[in-house]
Design a protein around this nucleic acid. Sequence first.
DNA 1: GGCATGAGGCTAATGCTATTAGCCGAGCTG
DNA 2: CAGCTCGGCTAATAGCATTAGCCTCATGCC
Lengths: 177, 177
Amino acid sequence: MSARQVELIELAESLIENFGLEAFSLGNLAKKANIRTPSLYKHFSSLMELEHIIISRGFLRFAKDLNHVIETAASDSDEDNIAALAAAYRAHALAHPQIYRLMTERPLDRALLIPGSELAAMDALLQYFDETPEQHDRARAAWAAAHGLVSLEISGRFPPGANIAGAWGVFIEAFSR
Amino acid sequence: MSARQVELIELAESLIENFGLEAFSLGNLAKKANIRTPSLYKHFSSLMELEHIIISRGFLRFAKDLNHVIETAASDSDEDNIAALAAAYRAHALAHPQIYRLMTERPLDRALLIPGSELAAMDALLQYFDETPEQHDRARAAWAAAHGLVSLEISGRFPPGANIAGAWGVFIEAFSR
DNA sequence: GGCATGAGGCTAATGCTATTAGCCGAGCTG
DNA sequence: CAGCTCGGCTAATAGCATTAGCCTCATGCC
């Protein structure tokens, strides 16, 4: 991955976060980079490829974030651990809401992802749970609940004045023990 | 709403479900209707308007579905009721996955919705819970969890072989009582 | 019966999107 | 110095939403 490529990827990421996922286009990226649209094809074979690089980087950053929290906040209390993980999940998603949307809303072509990036995010998320099949179900239900809470919040689906932290509290309590 | 309008709306809905949300465009709709694209503007003022009509109809159909289940399956057991609601939620979303995506993934312009449609879906979903603030949090957490489970399933994010029904079971058990 | 009106088509055109082909200059490397 | 590669460029295509303006047919009204 050349330096110029990384430059353009970061430009694209800032474009997405600052102007919304809907503004993500090669035309807008080229404009921000002060080059013509077709020149972008010297660095990426297609929009899909660039998109999946950004998604992969999102997965990896997500994994790093969660792993950091898990390492520094490991407590004896099950509820504390779940709460810390939940808080980290929400904080990360709300810090990068448009890229979170990109990561979760688009049909995923796994052949275009940076190998292992999706798994890294999953592992970071699920490592807290044991390896029994029953715990796998529990892990996936918890993941889904966190994703649902975050995704409804990002897309503004909770009524104004809704106590979102309260809903997170219910979720944490329901999944502790 | 003229008969021709309804005809075109239903054509658009079948287009979305049969060819995926990504295939939803005025060009494709016009092709299926055997007319030219600009003629669609005799019936809808913009793509956004048509999109929000379809979203509204999705909300209303969702509400009808859930209300029906709640009326016919009311049981004394809290867990049975939650399970019936959860099953209905999942069944509905999986029966109309692409329109469910349209309903939940797009930025919502509430001024363009059929008035009351979003609320109808919310009410159907939340009427099972009491009116106390604490129960509101519980209702929203449950809603988010169901949405998360369905949205991850539709977008193929669970690993192959994952026991999705098992995850739903964990969710139902966690939210019963 | 004739006439106006509206519904619902149409074509042409604009400016956006991704994408491909092909050209050109600058800089490094043999 | 020759040549290659990197990274720009223009021109062009096809599809996208959208607007303006034209035409035709059916309906209702005088």
